[in-house]
Amino acid sequence: MTLVQGALDWLGDPANWRGLSGIQQRLVEHLAITGAVILVAALIALPLGILVGHTRRGRGTVVALTSGVRSIPTLGLLTILALNLGIGLTAPVLALIVLAIPPLLAGAYAGIESVSVDAVDASRGIGMTEWQLVRAVEVPLALPVIVGGLRSATLQVVATATLAAYVADAGLGRFLFSGLKQRQYSEMLGGAILVATLALVLETALALMQRVLTTVPPDTGRP
């Protein structure tokens, strides 16, 4: 277990946390990329998914798109984009957005579709406008599934952002690649532990959020 000891020593050394390529900076980069990508992807995918779920139109396209993107190897997508757009953040961010859209889209439309047909029919029958129906009935009831999509997308982005360090100088993945290049196994393993921890923390937080939304009715008033 000297390997683990090495990694822990590397993690425990304050010198490794400081500076422009220190852990602190890399962690912030990783989180910032993840957050920005999820935000942009959600702005595209959620309205579209809600629209598909509400109108029940185009779900064949959504399913085809989702399974299509899932079969594309992420590293292939990253390297192709990087080759065309150059080394830097543009290529990985674009690739990450492409990868984050399908789970968000699927979560949104599957969530809306899962809302009880009776509740939707009754709400329309008592005189809700389509917009009120979406806002006050479908979205609140679909929220746990939508957050499920968010959870998948977040994990996907955190993971792929690590891989993105192969083509861009950003994120926690840098420690893995620089460790690999310099045969510094402790740095590599330390980096791996950091990424894994980050992923587990986010996964746990989102899982808890999903559970809270599932058990407690999220809305107690407003029409």
């Binding site: 277990m1 390997l3 683990v4 994990l155 955190v158 993971a159 792929t160 690590t162 891989l163 993945g173 893995l176 590599m188 393993l189 980096g191 791996a192 532990i193 990424v195 894994a196 992923a199 587990l200 986010l202 996964e203 746990t204 899982a207």
Partner: peptide, 18 residues
């Protein structure tokens, strides 16, 4: 198993040998 699935692949490859 849910948590294992959450670990990204690249870090997992690196941790397996240990």
């Amino acid at each position: 198993t849910g948590l294992l699935y959450a670990v990204p692949s690249l870090p997992l490859f690196i941790m397996i040998p240990v």
